[in-house]
């Protein structure tokens, strides 16, 4: 059954990808990219990766569409004819595809329990997590504790990308993402948008609440700082879309966002440093408490909070940077 579901979803994925590349209307491409992301998430879910599916859902459904549309509003919505020959790239791509497909015949089939990837550290993670950390979600345990260095690195990549976007687009005076013209021309705009505004504003608290649930329930179910950050950022972006950038920035000003970005990254590093000061290794949470299991749990909660803060801050800063550019 899993295989049948996966085959169907994957086939739709390929069809959508071909359509995305073929269309010259960039807007249509962004819409189809939304479907692509939904299909990816469903496929991740079918392949047992609930955490990954939740991340894809949080990022792909709202934020990535909004960012692409923001970029389209600032550039162009159609792709022009380039006149270059398409045959050379097509030949290159087909030859490469044939080579890699030939290589796949050596790969273990989907779900093969004897595949090399399942032999090395994974069984250890699965068998030792209940004893060492005692949380049900092994993905969170690996993310926060066993591979804490990796995650720290990823947080700093996100941090750097956010800072770089701010350098490139500048932050400063607030703008509207899709620059609205003066009021007299948008006659009746707000009146006609009464229903989306009411329903949207009703939803925002639930989105934030759900984000917090994902953040703090990440040890027990799918979730964690990355997903929660994206969901909360999506909630604030919804507010900005409904009520305008100015009010969104009044609710969560840019200085607060900067504190969140820097504070989140710093919190993660500090947890590591405190571990060192208390006599352990960097990011070895066992020393944080007299009981090593409780120490591990405390460490994971702290670093997940840092990740959540940093991701929310970066995603919102990026959104505001695009919005400020639109009216500059």
């Amino acid at each position: 059954m899993t295989i049948l579901l996966a085959v169907f979803l994957l086939t739709m994925l390929v069809i959508t990808a071909v359509a995305i590349v073929r269309t010259r209307d960039l807007f249509a491409a962004v819409m189809l990219l939304g479907i692509f992301s939904l299909l990816m998430a469903a496929n991740f879910f079918v392949l047992d990766a609930a955490d990954v599916a939740l991340t894809e859902a949080a990022v792909g459904a709202g934020i990535s569409t909004v960012l692409f549309l923001g970029a389209l509003a600032l550039t162009a919505a159609r792709e022009r004819e380039s006149g270059d020959s398409r045959w050379l790239p097509l030949v290159v791509v087909v030859i490469m595809a044939a080579t890699v497909v030939y290589a796949t015949f050596d790969k273990p089939a989907l779900g093969d329990p004897n595949a090399p990837v399942h032999q090395h550290v994974a069984p250890w993670y699965l068998s030792e997590t209940p004893r060492l950390i005692d949380i049900p979600n092994v993905v969170t345990a690996v993310l926060g504790s066993y591979r804490g260095y990796d995650t720290l690195g990823e947080v700093f990549v996100v941090f750097t990308a956010g800072i770089a976007v701010l350098f490139l687009l500048g932050s400063g005076r607030p703008g509207e993402l899709f620059s609205r013209p003066p009021d007299e021309l948008s006659t009746g705009g707000l009146k006609h948008h009464l229903i989306p505004r009411v329903v949207g504003k009703l939803l925002i608290p639930f989105i934030i609440l759900f984000g917090l649930y994902v953040q703090f329930h990440g040890e027990y179910g799918p979730g964690g700082g990355f997903q929660a950050g994206a969901i909360i950022a999506a909630g604030v972006i919804l507010y900005a879309l409904l009520e305008g950038e100015t009010r969104a920035l009044a609710a969560l000003p840019e200085s607060a966002l900067k504190v969140m970005v820097i504070g989140g990254a710093l919190l993660y590093t500090l947890v590591g440093v405190v571990c060192m000061l208390m006599g352990g290794n960097f990011l070895d949470y066992s020393v944080l408490s007299t009981n090593s299991v409780a120490g591990q749990q405390l460490g994971i909660i702290l670093i997940e909070a840092g990740v959540g803060l940093a991701v929310t801050g970066v995603l919102l800063s990026i959104f505001h940077a695009f919005a400020a550019r639109a009216t500059a």
Binding site: T65, L203, A234
Partner: peptide, 11 residues
């Protein structure tokens, strides 16, 4: 998550 967030893209 989808039930809550999907709306944002459309808006």
């Amino acid at each position: 998550a989808y039930a809550l967030i999907n709306f944002i893209g459309v808006l």
